[in-house]
């Protein structure tokens, strides 16, 4: 699912690009989004489609709020030291996982899709919902892109990315930008999860694969480069399916992780990033 992967990876890369923070707990924000969607659709006494749309709004907001809280209480105190924040986000990963296990349980639970529609093309059938996911992800990505390039908030974020201290001197509240960026990154992962959850089911360990794949995408696309992330997400999301057809999924993962490690060693700017 290249579209969903792109959403998650853009969230991760946004956080890295602006804050220089490698968020190991990113997959858990994805997981929390999916579980949040289950809670909303399960307890909200409205029709499935309405409930799902509510989840698409509520889950990312809630996850974003959690992320902002984590930023203010933990990451900010570490002064965003890269190595310390990795250790801290590993800690957060365990905490979120345990919280999900305790309050949600070890079962995988389905969320009803907002609609059932099967497009019957002449040579194969295609789930209408999957197409909808692609469109929805594209719309959200477009929104992020507009936010980053056309609005004051985006300008402030890009300014902070280029030079934190100068941004501060220009009166930008860097702390708020960071909290907002971290929340936005997490919310994107959560939104991706809400989109995917009618297909995949919500489970407390479901954050692992998206984390790994987003890492792969971000590293191959180039750390801090949103355009590279998008291209890489498409390539990898599509080729993942292709590779899995020829090899076992495990072997595909082995190749992918080794490839990422080697890219980082030999082309740290990413396959699509420009040198220096």
């Amino acid at each position: 699912m290249a579209a969903v992967l792109a959403l998650t990876a853009v969230g991760l890369n946004l956080v890295f690009g602006v804050m220089r923070v490698v968020n190991v707990a990113h997959g858990e924000f994805f997981m929390l989004g999916a579980i949040g969607a289950w809670f909303v659709t399960h307890y909200l006494p409205v029709p499935a489609a309405m409930a799902w749309i509510a989840a698409l709004v509520i889950a990312p907001l809630a996850v974003g709020a959690i992320a902002a809280l984590a930023d203010v209480t933990v990451l900010k105190r570490l002064k965003y030291d890269p190595e310390a924040t990795i250790v801290a986000t590993i800690g957060l990963l365990y905490i979120f996982q345990q919280a999900a296990l305790s309050f949600y349980g070890p079962d995988a639970r389905p969320v009803a899709p907002p609609f059932h529609l099967r497009l019957q093309l002449p040579w194969f059938g295609y789930s209408g919902y999957k197409l909808f996911v692609v469109v929805a992800a594209a719309v959200i990505l477009l929104g992020v892109w507009l936010l980053m390039t056309r609005t004051r908030a985006g300008l402030v974020m890009r300014a902070t990315q280029v030079d934190r201290d100068t941004a501060r001197n220009f009166g930008i509240d860097v702390d708020r930008v960071y909290a907002g960026t971290f929340a936005l990154g997490a919310a994107l992962a959560a939104a991706a999860a809400v989109l995917i959850v009618p297909i995949q089911q919500a489970h407390y360990l479901m954050g692992h694969d998206p984390l790994l794949l987003s890492f792969i995408v971000v590293i191959i696309g180039g750390l801090g480069s949103l355009r590279g992330t998008l291209v890489a997400a498409l390539v990898i999301g599509l080729s993942d399916g292709v590779i899995s057809m020829f090899f076992s999924p495990t072997l595909a993962k082995i190749i992918a992780t080794l490839a990422v490690a080697l890219v980082l060693v030999f082309r740290p700017q990413g396959l699509f990033g420009a040198k220096e």
């Binding site: 310390a84 801290a88 345990q98």
Partner: peptide, 19 residues
């Protein structure tokens, strides 16, 4: 059974207050 929580919390607290 929530021992994972303690591992996570210990990591966060250590890196915050007693690196």
């Amino acid at each position: 059974s929530a021992w994972l929580f303690f591992v996570g919390a210990a990591l966060v607290l250590l890196i915050l207050f007693a690196p």
